[in-house]
């Protein structure tokens, strides 16, 4: 999952760009369908197997699964929100920095970050700061920071220089230009980064279970360790559906928040 930062930023920004006009695009419609089919299929499969054995029953019950889903969602969403709070302002400041050293340093770190395996970051953090949810969130934030930071910088610096110049020519202050010109024009790109970060957090949160941060990774690992394929598959399908759902919701938000005409 190394550089989903870059990859997904590109992927998602490319994918979402043209889907503004039509409301019922294939993707909008197919993702929920896919989720319903996957979960429905899972329920039927589990029902058809009959009564779970003792070990399976430990995981395959509603309270346990819902608790894991809740943990997973909280972990991913809180990390993403923290990322937004940190990375968007940082990206704005960096995009206005003309110091080549600062930009080079940030880009260098970003490139290193792309090559760093998520599982390595999480486990190293756990070894250094101890296991648990705070460490998991910290690792997730560090990891999901890149796409949002990068997209904010790209989104602002890609704006046509003549637009900024004419805004300045009309007498806008730097803050007014930022608020009324730069940010609105950069919103689609920033949102694409945010969406990437969200999907990404759901994925990395699965690994967070290795350091006792709970979530649906736990279901997978229980299934794996105790050789219960049904448990394993249940965890995998549910977490996949959460990822697809988050991506879908973020896509809707993206289309909704995108300023008209952009």
């Amino acid at each position: 999952m190394t550089n989903l930062a870059q990859t997904q930023t590109q992927l998602l920004s490319v994918q979402t760009a043209p889907s503004q006009k039509r409301f019922f695009t294939a993707k909008r419609f197919l993702t929920p369908l896919l989720i319903v089919v996957a979960l429905g299929g899972l329920l039927i499969f589990l029902a058809a197997r009959g009564e779970p054995d003792k070990i399976e029953a430990f995981a395959l019950n509603w309270p346990y699964m819902l608790a894991r889903v809740w943990e997973h969602t909280v972990l991913a969403v809180s990390a993403t929100l923290l990322v937004a709070i940190i990375a968007i302002p940082a990206g704005i400041i960096l995009s206005h920095t003309h110091n080549r050293w600062v930009r080079g340093f940030v880009l260098g770190i970003a490139n290193m970050g792309q090559a760093t395996p998520a599982v390595g970051v999480i486990i190293l953090f756990a070894l250094i700061f101890g296991i648990g949810i705070p460490t998991a969130i910290a690792a997730l934030v560090i990891y999901a920071l890149l796409p949002v930071l990068r997209n904010t910088m790209v989104g602002i610096s890609q704006i046509d220089a003549s637009v900024i110049e004419s805004a300045r020519g009309m007498g806008m202050t730097t803050m007014q230009i930022l608020r009324r010109v730069e940010l609105p024009l950069a919103v689609p790109v920033i949102l694409a980064g945010f969406r990437t970060a969200l999907v990404f957090s759901v994925g990395v949160a699965t690994i967070a279970t290795f350091i006792n941060a709970g979530g649906l990774g736990e279901v997978i690992i229980v299934g794996l360790k105790l050789s219960r394929p049904a448990v394993l598959v249940t965890g995998a399908i549910v977490v996949s559906c959460i990822a697809l759902l988050m991506d879908w919701l973020a896509g809707l938000a993206e289309d909704h928040l995108r300023p008209k005409g952009v």
Partner: peptide
């Protein structure tokens, strides 16, 4: 779209589904 859905699936889940 299909390739996009695949990339959205968390890697732990994907590996688990293979087992």
């Amino acid at each position: 779209a299909v390739a996009g859905v695949i990339l959205t699936i968390p890697s732990m889940a994907m590996l688990a589904l293979m087992i």
